[in-house]
């Protein structure tokens, strides 16, 4: 707020401000002209000056029965969206950051195979947040578990604490290869953000989910678990789902069907 006040003695209306006002008018007009369209927008996006709210809890449902063997479209999409080097192309594959990875499991008794993607489970009670000495590991109001890279010291306690091996440390300088929307860099821990840049833009979905849908597998559903009318809430009501390591009582934001 104080930042705004500093500007108040500057009477000049900047082009920025004029642009903002006209954009705001356009949005208001949009509301009345096309109520259906805007309602959808309001449900998924929020105005840029509005903070994330705990009225929303973002979550994902993975239908492992639809997750295809050998398909890693979700991983590729994540790498592309977030500017990660694919593990296979990395000079040091064993320490290459991974935000989402494909697992192929086999029941030793029955030989049944299960495919699923594993990533940050966006716990409601995240152990990574509990152990972080600087408060850099945090849970945003809308349920995203994130790393504030501005205060992360790279100690990697959170990586130890995570039961899902979901976090990576960036070991090497990225030399300005990052995406403008996704800053990331050496010496910091990182993990799946549920594509926070897309959520805050109002896309209402993540890159991996888009890719899975585009490939026709439809194994991933993303949405607001607090909204009873959202696709994910309906799916969760319909299908039996499990939380991985449910015994830990972490109340996960990612739920699996068919495991």
């Amino acid at each position: 707020m104080s930042e705004q006040n500093k500007n108040s003695d500057n009477a000049v209306v900047s082009p920025e401000r004029r642009r903002f006002i006209s954009a705001a008018t356009a949005t208001a007009a949009g509301l009345t002209i096309a109520p259906g369209v805007m309602l959808y927008e309001v449900a998924h996006g929020r105005p840029e000056e509005q903070a994330a709210s705990s009225a929303v809890r973002w979550g994902m449902m993975v239908d492992a029965t639809k997750c295809a063997t050998g398909c890693d479209d979700c991983v590729t999409a994540c790498n592309t969206e977030n500017g990660l080097t694919p593990v296979a192309e990395s000079a040091h594959p064993r320490q290459a950051p991974q935000w989402i990875r494909k697992l192929e499991l086999q029941d030793p008794l029955t030989q049944m195979e299960t495919n699923l993607p594993m990533m940050c489970q966006h716990c409601a009670e995240p152990p990574c947040v509990d152990v972080c000495p600087t408060g850099a590991s945090f849970k945003r109001a809308d349920g995203l578990v994130l790393v504030n890279r501005h205060t992360c010291i790279g100690c990697r306690y959170c990586m130890m604490a995570c039961p899902y091996k979901a976090r990576s440390l960036v070991h090497e300088s990225l030399n300005d290869t990052q995406k403008p929307d996704v800053p990331r860099g050496i010496g910091c821990v990182e993990s799946c953000t549920f594509c926070v840049q897309k959520i805050d833009r109002g896309d209402g979905t993540t890159a991996c989910v888009e890719a899975c849908t585009a490939s026709g597998h439809n194994a991933l559903v993303f949405g607001d678990m607090n909204d009873p009318e959202s696709e994910i809430s309906k799916k969760l009501r319909e299908l039996p789902t499990k939380q991985v390591r449910a015994d830990l009582n972490l109340n996960l934001g990612v739920r699996y069907h068919g495991i």
Partner: peptide, 18 residues
């Protein structure tokens, strides 16, 4: 601005580094 954006999710453009 960076705390407001990263922690609260406020995405105003005015003081954005981008």
């Amino acid at each position: 601005h960076r705390d407001k954006t990263v922690i609260e999710g406020i995405r105003t453009k005015k003081y954005s580094l981008k």
